[in-house]
């Protein structure tokens, strides 16, 4: 087995950062997310590879919250598009967990299948390498296993890290992309046979089986009135969700030039479906709440054959009003 000692982590990151943007889980002040290692400042930042996960999912590496699409100039009646910002910079997501990597698989479905390929996403995605961090100790709100994720065998990973003890990590190469990256740091790895930990039991189990089919008949069920009562329609759950991918397209212009960008949007916002003529098909919290959960548990499944939830547990603990998707799945089962 190839392994590296924890003391060498920063050396590895330094080396990898020479040829790519390396996104690593960090605490930066109150922010918890993946940040470019080049911006790491040990006086303010803390590397948190050992933590269960970080609050902001790494989806923003392939799908940034705000992304410039193209810039333009207008002169009189003439308009030209002078630059399209397709970003091909090499990137590495270092330490992504299986749930968040599964989410990337779902984003791939959205952005790369069903008729159109999203060129902005595609360019970023193709140039991103995933170094996953296998999970052996599920957290209090984790239910990835119930949603079809294997926490110790992250799919899509180019390299899998396995924390075998406080001493260090196993470095397991999975793909050719992973081979190439490994070559860059091979002198920092060593050969050692180690005992891998066992996956601990999940506290939370969810039974998603049959939920999508059952929901077909529950659109007008009164449970949506009750379940949505506490929801205050903020966007926290959608923004910290590794699978939520709705976006808006907007323009910023000053005088005769500017750029068009896209930015994350949230189905919880009223404006999301507000039409210019005044009609809004999802006017109240109930409709928006229902659409969000049906999208995750039914509509996405109907379209792509899988639920749009990887059981990462974030939305369960961040909701100011205590809404929990785990409870909602239970309610649906019991309805």
């Amino acid at each position: 087995m190839k392994v590296f000692k924890k003391g060498r982590l920063e050396k590895i990151l330094d080396k990898l950062s020479e040829s790519a943007e390396v996104y690593v889980p960090m605490m930066r002040g109150a922010q918890s997310g993946f940040f470019d290692y080049k911006t790491y400042n040990p006086d303010f930042d803390e590397l948190v590879l050992e933590a269960l996960n970080v609050l902001r999912p790494p989806k923003e590496v392939v799908f940034p919250q705000t992304e410039k699409m193209y810039s333009f100039k207008q002169e009189g009646q003439d308009v030209i598009i002078d630059k399209v910002y397709e970003d091909e910079n090499p990137r590495i997501i270092f330490g992504i967990r299986a749930c968040d990597l599964k989410a990337i698989e779902y984003l791939d479905e959205v952005f790369l299948t069903c008729g159109y390929e999203d060129a902005f996403y595609k360019k970023r995605r193709e140039n991103t390498v995933f170094i996953a961090n296998a999970c052996y100790t599920p957290g209090k709100n984790c239910f990835c296993e119930s949603m079809g994720v294997n926490p110790v065998e992250p799919e899509l990973a180019d390299i899998v890290l396995r924390e075998y003890s406080d001493e260090g990590y196993v470095w397991e190469v999975k793909t050719e992309k992973g081979e190439n990256i490994t070559r860059l740091i091979s002198d920092l790895l060593e050969d050692k046979e180690v005992q891998l930990p066992e996956l601990k039991k999940f506290v939370i189990k969810v039974d998603y089986d049959g939920v999508a089919e059952k929901l077909k008949g529950l659109f007008e069920h009164p449970m949506w009135d009750r379940l949505s009562e506490p929801c205050q329609t903020c966007g926290i759950c959608t923004y910290i969700c590794p699978t939520c991918h709705c976006f808006d397209i907007q323009v910023k212009a000053w005088g005769d030039e500017g750029y068009r960008f896209r930015c994350w949007d949230s189905c919880m916002y009223r404006e999301y479906t507000q039409m210019a003529g005044g009609h809004n098909p999802r006017e109240t919290a109930k409709e928006r709440f229902r659409n969000r959960f049906l999208h995750k548990l039914e509509f996405f499944y109907e379209r792509y054959g899988k639920p749009l939830c990887t059981g990462c547990g974030r939305c369960v603990f961040v909701c100011p009003s205590g809404v929990s998707i785990v409870k909602i799945i239970e309610e649906i089962k019991g309805a």
Binding site: V110, F111, G115, F247, R262, M275, P281, H295, F299, E302
Partner: peptide
Amino acid sequence: LEMRMKCGIGKCGRCNIGSEYICL
């Protein structure tokens, strides 16, 4: 039908009615 649309290619999410995207 008419729904609010942004991307037109079934990605941005908002124009769904059930699992169908109006734009697509």
